[in-house]
């Protein structure tokens, strides 16, 4: 129950690398799998094998085209809760069911006190919250709060499900409130940015921009053109003789 958003030092969140994301949706699938048995379980699915499947997902992967023509870039764009430092979703909640944890900055919903008014989903500019029609309460990304602190799991697995499953290592997890953490350094190195900074939500999650395309051969360090090389010893004796005559 928090009426005010507490300032937090530790601020756990994700860094998503748009340069390496291949748009495979594995993060969304593993997220769904973990969380349908986790803190906010179950995540409903209506008509899952029918023509009109619908349900709650904490993670959705959009694909955008940025720019036009030959220089345009296809960018796969995973989006989940950004665990904002100024979460209007928490402020508008009339019951205190939506809250931001003081100890690590994770934004959660208490399903026992949520009245299902949906106002928090209206207040979120990013579309991070989805309503569960079966339970009548709002659901959202928990940053796998039931996994990252789970001491029954090997330490390497104590990261959100989306991070542990990403085959391209496009998702990184850590403390973005600590400027010396690996994720903060990654953000600094790669020019990581916030989504819709103009709205002032101060999202914790950061996105790493796609690197510049290496459209020309020289950009990769390879020779700009392939040179013709002839190994005289490998030639047929007649061709070797012709080569020797012509090379004079």
């Amino acid at each position: 129950m928090t009426a005010y958003t507490p300032p937090t030092g530790k601020q756990l969140g994700l860094v998503i690398d748009l340069d390496t994301c291949v748009g495979c949706h594995a993060c969304a699938v593993n997220c769904k799998e973990w969380n349908t048995g986790g803190h906010s379980a179950p995540l409903p699915d209506r008509d899952p094998y029918g023509a009109d499947p619908t349900g709650v997902w904490f993670n959705r992967i959009h694909t955008f085209e940025a720019g036009e023509g030959a220089t345009s870039r296809t960018v796969h764009f995973p989006k989940s809760c950004l665990h904002c430092a100024e979460p209007l979703c928490v402020e508008v909640c009339p019951t205190g069911a939506s809250y931001k944890r003081v100890e690590d900055g994770i934004v959660l919903v208490n399903a026992d006190t949520c009245i299902g008014c949906k106002l928090c989903s209206w207040a979120c500019p990013y579309g991070a919250r989805e309503f569960d029609d079966d339970d009548g309460v709002m659901k959202k990304c928990t940053l796998c709060v039931d996994k990252i602190y789970n001491e029954t799991l090997p330490e390497a697995d104590r990261v959100p499900a989306c991070v542990s499953t990403c085959p391209a290592s496009a998702r990184h997890f850590g403390d973005l409130g600590d400027p010396d953490s690996a994720v903060s350094k990654l953000v600094a190195d790669r020019g990581g940015y916030e989504l819709m900074p103009e709205l002032g939500y101060k999202p914790t999650n950061r996105y790493l921009p796609p690197r510049e395309s290496k459209a020309k051969a020289g950009c990769t360090g390879a020779p700009a053109a392939l040179e013709t090389r002839i190994d005289p010893d490998a030639l047929h004796p007649v061709l070797r003789w012709v080569d020797r005559i012509l090379s004079r």
């Binding site: 748009l18 748009g23 969304a28 009109d52 499947p53 619908t54 349900g55 709650v56 997902w57 959705r60 992967i61 959009h62 694909t63 955008f64 085209e65 940025a66 720019g67 036009e68 220089t71 345009s72 870039r73 296809t74 960018v75 764009f77 989903s121 500019p125 579309g127 989805e130 309503f131 940015y193 916030e194 989504l195 819709m196 900074p197 103009e198 709205l199 996105y207 921009p209 796609p210």
Partner: peptide, 29 residues
């Protein structure tokens, strides 16, 4: 003030348009 460019942060590359939606049918959002 917000646009597809600020929503994705990809505006430096030019105009941003949705190429593929995350799913085929409407969701809650």
């Amino acid at each position: 003030v917000s646009t597809p460019e600020t929503a994705t942060g990809l505006g430096a590359r030019g105009k941003v348009r949705l190429l593929e939606s995350p799913h085929q049918v409407d969701n809650y959002l």
